[in-house]
Design a binder for these strands. Sequence first.
DNA 1: TTCGGCAACCAGTATAGACGGGTCGGACCG
DNA 2: CGGTCCGACCCGTCTATACTGGTTGCCGAA
Lengths: 256, 256
Amino acid sequence: MTAPADSARRSAEGHVVPYWRRIELALRARIEGLTPGDRLPSDADLCSEFGVSRMTARNAVTRLVEEGLIVRVSGRGTFVAEPPAHRRADRLLTFSHEMRRRGRVPSSRLLAREIRPSSATEAAALGLRASEPIVVVRRLRCADDEPIALETAVIIQSVAAAVLAADVEHGSLHEALARAGWHLRRGTATIGAAAASPEDARLLGLRRGDPLLVERRVIADTHGRRVEATESRYPADRYALDVQFDVEPDTDRETR
Amino acid sequence: MTAPADSARRSAEGHVVPYWRRIELALRARIEGLTPGDRLPSDADLCSEFGVSRMTARNAVTRLVEEGLIVRVSGRGTFVAEPPAHRRADRLLTFSHEMRRRGRVPSSRLLAREIRPSSATEAAALGLRASEPIVVVRRLRCADDEPIALETAVIIQSVAAAVLAADVEHGSLHEALARAGWHLRRGTATIGAAAASPEDARLLGLRRGDPLLVERRVIADTHGRRVEATESRYPADRYALDVQFDVEPDTDRETR
DNA sequence: TTCGGCAACCAGTATAGACGGGTCGGACCG
DNA sequence: CGGTCCGACCCGTCTATACTGGTTGCCGAA
């Protein structure tokens, strides 16, 4: 038989949790306690440890490799990778988690929270009809009381109740959404730069015209529904993003 | 046996070309002629078309999914994805290709090309000993004669001959390196912002202090050797990067 | 005509086994 | 003592098969 009808494979919400997921989580936890360069179990080790076939074990490992947490070296083994110096642009973790990961103390100041009709741009980003109502949450995010980001989140009205009830100064907006049953999963970001407006400058403690790193994200939930569009504005000298990239195969020049 | 000892499986350099690679390239070409939302062959179709097992076909498809070219929808099929508006931060393609993709005419102006000892920062980025010699190529990249990027590439000395011989104003630096046997494959980028220096401003046609998007890349070849470190400085209003991201799994509980 | 159910598809997950080529340490030989 | 070769390991690739759950279109019954 193949997938054992093992009842413990179901999560709280009743979804089936694949075997590779358990292995992935176990490895993720194990990596926490290791240092870069340390060796991880081989494919064969994982097979016997978790009682799965090699393809299944490799599936779990492959995900961590793509995430950049570990590297596979053919003929030698699998090793813990060097962590990036900044937040990875292709991962999104809550501001609080990210700052704590870097040993800093996060805090937030709520600047505004309101329901209003969406602008044309906002409606387009979330795939709404023009001027359909949205919830806006605007926060100043700090680390060790130093302003790091000016963040404006625009959220679809269906989750208004959860957003308005949440403690967005001390808790995570995404955690509040998750509790309301909206599990955010993937998204697309556009990264650019801009000059600080007078308001940016005042809130972030800069001078007008100072360079900002601007990240615009549209985040969708598990079912692909666009839930949130956020703009984060970071002072250039306090924030950067890392990303791993592949060189486009030059072979017979595939472009796009 | 399993992998047929098919002699056509070897590339010009003698590497074995996996089956999934051929399928990947075939699909990549096919996608060119399709529009977003179009359906691609199912796993089963690919199996019979290319005469491989399903795991192999899926391997090829999975790579394109990760690249964001296509999306898989369980129960329905695989579809061409919406292309990003800007260059994807997690792909690197030559400046010329990228501009042509957007229907613009690329050109370059060579500002400097020299061999000199590396600075401490440069040596660290490339993993060299301090002040080991490097080749520096500095170019102004334009589209339709509008300056788009100020690019400074720092390259290890082993490839100096190829770099000095290359026509870097009309040809691609990476193509020159590829002809010399150095196949660049992966890298890490750090994305930030900065204010234009007087020199930036002069070359890019900006005012001093205007915001720039700054991308610093370290690129390695197929064997993991770091070959090139490049800094690109883009005027904020003429360039942006796109990236797809995953939301970090909510620490402890895996739900979803 | 509409609605319910079924069959055909389709991707997701999983098994078990196999060969290839790279890496590395130890045994063996000169 | 040094160099070479071999075998143990390990990742990369590939085959063949199978069950699950979601989607869709079609057909027949109400």
